[in-house]
Design a protein around this nucleic acid. Sequence first.
DNA 1: CATGAATGAGTATTCATTCAT
DNA 2: CATGAATGAATACTCATTCAT
Lengths: 194, 194, 194, 194
Amino acid sequence: MSPKTKEQYAKIREDRRELILKAALELFASQGISHTTIHQIAKKAGISKGLIYNYFTSKEELLEEIIKSSIEHLYAFFDPDHDGILTTEEMEYFIEQQIKMLKQNIDFWKFLYMLLVQPSAQKLVHQLQFEILASGMWKMIASYFRNHKFEDPELETWFFHSMLDGVYMNYVFNAEKYPIDRMKELIIQRYCKP
Amino acid sequence: MSPKTKEQYAKIREDRRELILKAALELFASQGISHTTIHQIAKKAGISKGLIYNYFTSKEELLEEIIKSSIEHLYAFFDPDHDGILTTEEMEYFIEQQIKMLKQNIDFWKFLYMLLVQPSAQKLVHQLQFEILASGMWKMIASYFRNHKFEDPELETWFFHSMLDGVYMNYVFNAEKYPIDRMKELIIQRYCKP
Amino acid sequence: MSPKTKEQYAKIREDRRELILKAALELFASQGISHTTIHQIAKKAGISKGLIYNYFTSKEELLEEIIKSSIEHLYAFFDPDHDGILTTEEMEYFIEQQIKMLKQNIDFWKFLYMLLVQPSAQKLVHQLQFEILASGMWKMIASYFRNHKFEDPELETWFFHSMLDGVYMNYVFNAEKYPIDRMKELIIQRYCKP
Amino acid sequence: MSPKTKEQYAKIREDRRELILKAALELFASQGISHTTIHQIAKKAGISKGLIYNYFTSKEELLEEIIKSSIEHLYAFFDPDHDGILTTEEMEYFIEQQIKMLKQNIDFWKFLYMLLVQPSAQKLVHQLQFEILASGMWKMIASYFRNHKFEDPELETWFFHSMLDGVYMNYVFNAEKYPIDRMKELIIQRYCKP
DNA sequence: CATGAATGAGTATTCATTCAT
DNA sequence: CATGAATGAATACTCATTCAT
């Protein structure tokens, strides 16, 4: 009955925003981006079509906001906030964590690979790749390979990322068949047990 | 003066068909499947909208025909018609050839990765994966790993395929930056120079 | 200021629905079903093309809904809710009423005869005929003829219906020339004045 | 081998023309006029689409030619070339013949009723009705009723025609169920056995 | 004459977006 | 703030008609 405070309104807005983003991500992942309509997103979020435009100016912007939120998500995912030298145990833990999160966020990863492949999102994707390249994770992996005497550590880092991409993508789009756990062991074996 | 012969008509039809498939593949690869209109395909092929429907009953069918043609393409790509044991030299040649063809058919590969990620094409993709699994290439690689005393040859085959997927995909969607030639050397080094 | 209530929306929807059905029936009757475009219906109803799809999923469904509504219309028309024995006065009244309604609903009857003749609607039409056969009117007429000592009451009912069909159809498609009032008198004379 | 004479060409043209008209009539009757394509007609007639335009300038004209041919057909049907007074036996024979021809030309009659109901053909239909009104048959029936002391012979003629229309139409669009033979007996009974 | 490839105007349908309430 | 009715530009698809050979 009492009028809500500004903070309460702000919280409601933020919650609702997240709700929409979540609904959109799920639908994008399961149906593809262009096959998902604003109507479906609204229905899934339990709100009206019109209200979505109260939070995002267009479908385009909604997509961009999911991407932004994904980038932040990825930072948390990739950047273990580790500044020093990675031990083999830490590397093992890092791989374990990544695959654990992969399994828990299949929708998110499906969406990312969709994006990677979507020509209309190429600019965003390149921006994203640039950020990853510049991020702590890339450097961390590169220095791990340097410290472990890999011949061409930078190339090895490309290889490692590409390989993970291939594994992750095959897993998220073929989850039942893919031997993700044995694959994890193989990767750990190969990179952390010298 | 006289009407065209059956053979002449058949040739025209086959040529036109190929023309349309080619135009469609290029546009699908550069713009994404659902962002490509029949109108654009017709324009690119230098024909009228209506004519496309003289060759394919729907956009859906056009897509399926590209996929079918791609599967045949892939067989040529994957199945080196090699029945005996693969030597390390042959394996090296095989990798060289694959990457050469990858560089020459970027559109085709972009299209394939788009498909892999397109929920509406999942059934076709799974069918495709099944065929590859059952194909000579998979077995050939697996027996190569078996002969070269890899610990778990079957898992190694999954790894090898996933890794190649990751490399190929990163290359085709980021062709300028990706160090594909050095990557090729690394892969050959790792799998063919024991 | 406040959003519309559920009831308000329901009323708008129902009104709009009727508006569209009415516009469509008029155009179908005056131009034929397949010569009538969605665009024309929208224009006649004073709304946009798109809105029609907010109420009916396709032109096909719109047609079906008009048919359904016509069937209900017909029941009211045919079934005088008379359970007992029809006197000659009641029969006369019944014929008078039918022809009065015929004159008031020419579009509706044109549409029905169009349907009867439309191969793509044959299934619906047969269903419709079945319902009429099973309806009170058919039985009522049959028992009238039985009570009035017609030789073969069932055949007489077929004759009566066929004859009415012929009269109605000729009238609605040739309204200016057809002597409908004198025809009514003749029918009454023949069937109600023994 | 030898060049055909002008007469032979003329005969071929005439035959082919009839072939096209026949194929078109069958398809119009079974699918409806606007659901029948030139392509289908060509296929059914065993010729190419283009050739149809060698005989008729448009689909419209093809339709008109079928109607013209139908009118001639109808004259043969309706006008027993009887100038004198119709005896009851002759009337009976006339009805028998009509229904016999009806049963043999269901497609033709379906087509006629389609036309009657097709707003775009109304002008043609009215022309047709006018010709029938002016034709020998109408007068012959009218004078039969005059001679047999019907109260209002002209109205009776309208009634008779309408009734026959209703019977014919119900029969051709519901041929399996309709008791056409018993109906014929009833009509003969009523009009020829005083 | 005969063919069927080719055209393009016309139609149904979808869906992001707006807006009155 | 919230709703969903309403709009219209965009898109797939059809088909009568033309025309080079």
